[in-house]
Amino acid sequence: MPSVEIPLEKWTGQVHQVTLGAGGRKTVTVGGENTLPYLHFDGTIPNKTAVAIEIQDIAPADWSPTLLKAWGDVVNDPATWAKKAVEYGAEAILLNLKSAHPDEGNTGIAEAKAVTDKILSAVDVPLIVIGTGVADKDNEILPAVSEAARGQRIAIGNCEEKNYRTVVAVCIADGHIAIPSSPVDLNLAKQLNILLTDAGLPIDAILMDPTTGALGYGLEYTYSVMERLRMAGLGGDKLTAMPIINNVGEDAWKQKEAKVAQGLPESWGDMETRGIIWEEQTAISLMQAGSNLVVLRHPQSVAKVGAAITKLMG
């Protein structure tokens, strides 16, 4: 009879451990595992995938009706929204500074600082703040956000090759975590990590965003790049071993499948269910590729994905 002996995969490296939250806030620690996702038999997994909820500094104009229905009036006030999100199980809040985008209102330093202050006092979970993606604008507002949250170890993003110096400088100065974002490419992700650490950012102050492609919209590219990053990191390359953050909600809910109510084929089924499943499927798939922090938008997905994570921890 053939005797089954499980071949174990012993990696030499491990994912860096990153802790969000300090200065009296609750903390959330991600990373630290020395195995591929949730393979407890191969190694140790000290921290589970964390779940954050995304809120915006202005009531979203382009969100799916499914989301707006789920959240109701709270979207009109970021602080109330944040509190509600924590009630729904958010372990961290991702604040999207939507209103600062030149096309969305172009608000400035004062507004960015004010809303950061507001969220920080409204909730005690860690905060993640994402800028507009317009480098010049972010260089203007993110230093103010950083200063407002000094010592509270928030995560600040996104930084790319063209604006990483600013984000890194303020993260170092104020004790925060930077989120480098690269366009679904292992080498570019690594290159950015090199630039960040060369600029003096400690290796445990980086959460990397490989760019999230939702289910049906590039999921497979994100999946494979993450899997490769993780394998490179576990293989001993410290500059690819950063924990990974995936802004799942943003990309999943932007798609027609999650957003459009009318004029669709019957075979797509009920819109509300479909949208939520779309977000959940994106999350569970990317968790299999190494996601350490998933950002979601719908309260139901937060509950269900959270429950799945608990079960994966065994």
Binding site: N139, P143, E147, N163, R165, T166, V168, A169, V170, A173
Partner: peptide, 12 residues
């Protein structure tokens, strides 16, 4: 120092 320092180290 903070205002200028950021711009010095980020290259602006």
């Amino acid at each position: 120092m903070r205002g200028w320092g950021i711009q010095l180290v980020d290259g602006r």
